[in-house]
Amino acid sequence: MSKQGEGLVVCVTGASGSIGSWLVNLLLARGYTIHGTVRNLRDEKETKHLESLEGAESRLRLFQIDLLDFDSIAAAINGCVGVFHLASPCSVDHVHDPQKELLDPAIKGTLNVLTAAKQLGVKRVVLTSSISAISPSPNWPDDKIKTEECWTDIEYCKQNELWYPISKTLAEKAAWEFSKEKGLDVVVVNPGTVMGPNIPPTLNASMVMLLRLLQGCTETYQDFFMGSVHFKDVALAHILVYENKSATGRHLCVEAISHYGDFVAKVAELYPEYNIPSLPRDTQPGLLRAKDGAKKLMDLGLEFIPMEQIIKDAVESLKSKGFMS
């Protein structure tokens, strides 16, 4: 990898998560110095895997932050030229207190990060949003492939108590509003279902979804799936939109726009020894498939790892980490 980051200091919030760890790994390989944020510096499950990455000893400094505590965020961002804001709670399961568990950390946390970035002279912020800010969008035209112009339907989500898409949509919209009003350079990545070799000892929501599928779960994730993407590609997408000053707006990040049914069929084909449920191929009503859904990122030079390889890497990772035999 080119050492484009030599001498540059950037902040990665949510550094200990599955995407965050990959991003820190690739940024270190490019020569960047990183301020990585975690929730608890004393929790080895958050810190140990980061500290063991190549280059971490000299170029990674960890900060403990609370997304609702502005001062803790400002301390981590101080001295940085760029910020990658990944930290945001993720759950596709039922939550008891959506405001406290999802909405406040996502929306207020994002605004705290952007405010600190603006005050401290940060040049560009890359925000990790989600396909959950693009879909579910039942009113999108049936004959049109979903693009970055599509936004999640908040009313539909409220009626169906889909709090995670609401949190991601409102946080992203708040970021665009802030960017426009305060003149901060913000660019967004909207990843799909992110899987692959898991660096931290804990699993992200997408890897848990795969694990449940391998154990026979028949959930179709109708409102949560739009395509899969490899951890490495999501991390690369963040770096590409940060380093390419021509990159603007939102960037859908999936290897292809596909249905969960396509994904399940591929898992079943690759791993016939597991009891994979048979699901209909069209599990995402009205979603048109597309090979180049992530055209904006492809135009920046990203060559996506195909679904088959994503699944193989993810399953092997689940086995090697002892989550399944």
Score class of each variant (00 low, 15 high):
87 A>S: 13
297 L>C: 13
14 G>N: 04
202 T>K: 14
154 I>P: 00
297 L>I: 13
100 K>Q: 09
266 K>R: 14
80 C>G: 01
21 S>V: 06
145 I>K: 05
186 V>E: 12
292 D>S: 13
292 D>N: 15
182 K>N: 15
26 L>W: 08
63 F>V: 05
120 L>E: 06
25 N>V: 10
151 W>I: 08
321 K>P: 06
36 G>V: 04
251 H>T: 01
163 W>L: 04
68 L>F: 05
103 L>N: 00
89 P>H: 09
274 Y>L: 15
146 K>L: 10
232 K>I: 00
298 M>G: 09
46 E>L: 12
6 E>N: 14
166 I>Y: 02
317 S>H: 00
233 D>V: 04
77 I>K: 09
154 I>C: 03
9 V>E: 13
11 C>P: 09
15 A>M: 11
132 S>E: 07
248 T>C: 15
91 S>R: 01
129 S>D: 04
59 R>Y: 09
173 K>I: 14
34 I>D: 05
11 C>F: 10
91 S>K: 06
65 I>Y: 06
83 V>P: 02
71 D>L: 14
107 I>Y: 02
194 V>Y: 03
151 W>K: 06
207 M>S: 02
268 A>I: 07
107 I>K: 09
255 E>P: 05
123 K>A: 11
97 D>A: 13
172 E>A: 10
150 C>M: 14
244 N>L: 07
273 E>K: 15
284 Q>K: 13
89 P>E: 04
54 E>W: 04
2 S>A: 14
83 V>F: 04
144 K>W: 08
54 E>G: 15
141 P>N: 12
56 A>D: 03
43 D>E: 12
34 I>T: 08
214 L>H: 06
296 K>L: 10
80 C>L: 03
158 K>F: 09
191 P>C: 09
262 D>S: 14
289 R>S: 04
151 W>H: 05
266 K>A: 15
173 K>C: 12
34 I>H: 11
128 T>I: 07
194 V>H: 03
166 I>K: 00
49 H>G: 13
12 V>L: 07
266 K>P: 06
